[in-house]
Write a protein that binds this DNA or RNA. Structure first.
Length: 318
DNA sequence: ATGGTTTTTACTGCGTC
DNA sequence: GACGCGGTAAAAACCAT
């Protein structure tokens, strides 16, 4: 199999920008008109962005506007809306309170913070959302995924789906579903690993949540997403990524794609592309980063080479 | 539960550095 | 001889029914 130099090498990748979060190369997402970072999942125009909707132009403006308070967020059980009773010991005009009033305020504060998470549902919610936050940061997920996960969990709680279900199971399932909804490529395996669960039970919870809350099927991330992620985590030359992506974009033959695990396909494209550039990554490594076996990589390669265009479109001979 | 499909496991042979 | 690669058979995992 001699594929080297079948494909033109000089390609322009100057339009690429770097991810502000982790510094990786962003890839464009044509359908949605946004750019995403395949490694950390950062999206340039995040739909569920929880940041403040204003931008302070100078200190004065900041001071004026800061009183609108923190932006609401679904990832906190009370959406970040709560009254804090300060401990400054002064009244509204800045005068010091007398000692008896101070002890009163102490009591009030105590009860305020207690009542904040008073009902059992509220306590459960804040517990789950906390776990969810941990899981998200363990997986390096961006905020929009966290918000989506929180939204899903709230819905499921509303419908009593979460009743008498393991907390960690529900969080793992919602986080995984959120990844898929946001198009962030994290495998069930990865989520399960981060949550210290086995794949099977996460899958069970996931199906449950999918059926009860999400109703319609959410497709797993595309092969292209897998390719980008693979290239970035393995620190492969972006040129290889671009070739792999263009290859994947053209290989629409169902003989190649149907029923095949996207991770394996992505690995095959990346491997083939690296060979074409003469950058010869060992199958071993590509397979390892894609979390599939060499055998799978080989089989996918065989499918691609048998059915696909490398002969028709990429070879000068034909 | 089941059967069909895909992936993994485990092993072997070949060529090259 | 170690390494990368290709292949195969059988087991395991997955998925729709």
């Amino acid at each position: 199999m001699k594929l080297v130099s079948l494909y033109g090498v000089g390609r322009d990748d100057s339009f690429r920008t770097a991810c502000p979060v982790c510094g990786n190369t962003l890839i464009g997402d044509a359908e949605k008109g946004e750019e995403v970072c395949p490694l950390c999942g950062y999206v340039t125009s995040a739909p569920a962005d929880s940041g403040p909707e204003w931008k302070a132009m100078d200190m004065e403006e900041k001071n004026r506007r800061v009183r609108v308070g923190a932006p609401t967020t679904l990832a906190l059980h009370d959406m970040g809306l709560t009254t804090e009773i300060g401990r400054s010991g002064r009244d509204s005009r800045g005068k010091y309170l007398d000692p008896s009033m101070r002890t009163n305020m102490e009591k009030l504060r105590k009860w305020q913070s207690r009542s904040r998470t008073s009902t059992s549902e509220e306590r459960g919610l804040s517990n789950v959302l906390g776990k969810m936050g941990e899981l998200c940061s363990a997986l390096n997920l961006p905020d929009n995924v966290k918000e989506t996960a929180a939204k899903i969990y709230r819905d499921s709680a509303k419908r009593k789906v979460a009743k008498s279900k393991s907390i960690i199971g529900m969080t793992a399932a919602t986080v995984y579903l959120a990844c898929r909804k946001c198009g962030v490529s994290r495998t069930l395996k990865e989520v399960a690993r981060a949550a210290n669960m086995d794949k099977g039970s996460v899958a069970r919870y996931f199906r449950l949540v999918l059926k009860e809350v999400e109703k319609e099927y959410v497709p797993p991330p595309s092969v292209e997403k897998y390719i980008s992620k693979l290239v970035n985590t393995a620190k492969i030359d972006p040129k290889v990524e671009r070739l792999a992506l263009s290859l994947a974009g053209r290989a629409t033959d169902p003989k190649i794609t149907s029923g095949k695990a996207p991770a394996g396909l992505a690995a095959a494209y990346v491997y083939l592309s690296s060979v074409m550039y003469g950058a010869h990554l060992p199958q071993r490594e590509v397979a390892e980063f894609a979390e599939v076996t060499e055998v799978t990589v080989r089989n996918r390669c065989r499918d691609i080479l048998e059915n696909f265009v490398i002969r028709q479109e990429f070879s000068p001979a034909k």
